[in-house]
Computed example of a mutant assay.
Amino acid sequence: MTLNFRAEGAPLSLDLSHLIVAGWTGRDADAIAHHIEELAALGVPAPSATPLYYRVAAQLLTQAPVLEAVGNETSGEVEPLIVAVEGRTYLGLASDHTDRALEAHSVALSKQVCAKPCASELWSWKSVSDHLEEIVLRSWIEEGGEWVPYQEGTLAAIRPLTDLIAGAGLADLADDGPVAMLCGTFGAKGGVRPATRFRMQMEDPRNGRAITHEYETRNLPEVA
């Protein structure tokens, strides 16, 4: 599946070879513990190590405005997106949409069963590399017909992206073709919960720009 991006104003079409979802990437040990406790309340077991790099099907990354998921226990998470292609690196915006019911049995499988929505705009690594920790990520969910703040934080709360790039072995994987990685998230205000509409934003205050993306989840019947 071809993804059509705009990278610093120029078109960039990619057929991904690899997609990775990095988890448990918080820089603050207390924040990691909080997120582990937050998910433990949903029955999710603690990770074997932090961070972890989950390999998922490359075709899961999507720019579609509607995501279809089985059941009503899925939810999004705003995350920075790293894209590496032909020696170039870009920063983008994505949601690690996850099946929370399945997550209680297997985090790896829960990552695999949901598409990962992403915005169509990318920033060059060179344009943000000297102020990555200033970049702000936010998300909102629709509840009761209104948009409610759901997550907010800066990349300073996530492990350095260069460390995650090295830990995932992105340079070697990129030898096979374009590769993308979602890089972790922040705790949810009011707790992790499903919503049929999800909005996210990545703001670069130094350069006065932002990337936004919004998608809807269509719940398919869970037939036994």
Score class of each variant (00 low, 15 high):
D130S: 13
V179D: 06
Q201A: 13
A57E: 11
S13G: 09
C183E: 10
A119G: 10
E103H: 12
A168K: 12
R159H: 08
E134H: 05
V113M: 02
D28H: 07
W147C: 03
R209E: 08
S48Y: 03
S120Y: 07
V179S: 08
T25M: 08
L170T: 05
V66G: 00
I135K: 11
E152H: 14
L182I: 10
A94H: 11
H34F: 11
T196A: 14
H105V: 15
L220M: 15
V83Q: 03
G144V: 07
C118M: 11
A7R: 10
E8K: 00
G9Y: 05
L173I: 01
T185G: 06
I135N: 09
P194G: 14
A49M: 09
Q151S: 04
L3W: 07
I135A: 04
D96W: 04
S95E: 05
G169A: 08
R218C: 06
V223M: 01
R138V: 00
A157Y: 10
L164R: 11
T25W: 04
L14Q: 07
G190Y: 10
D15S: 14
A64I: 02
R206F: 02
G190Q: 05
D175S: 13
L161Q: 04
T212G: 07
L102E: 04
P194F: 09
G187N: 05
P11C: 07
W147A: 10
W125R: 09
R197D: 04
R193W: 04
R55A: 15
H131R: 01
L52V: 11
D172M: 00
P205A: 07
M202K: 11
M181E: 03
D30I: 02
W147Y: 08
K111A: 08
V44H: 15
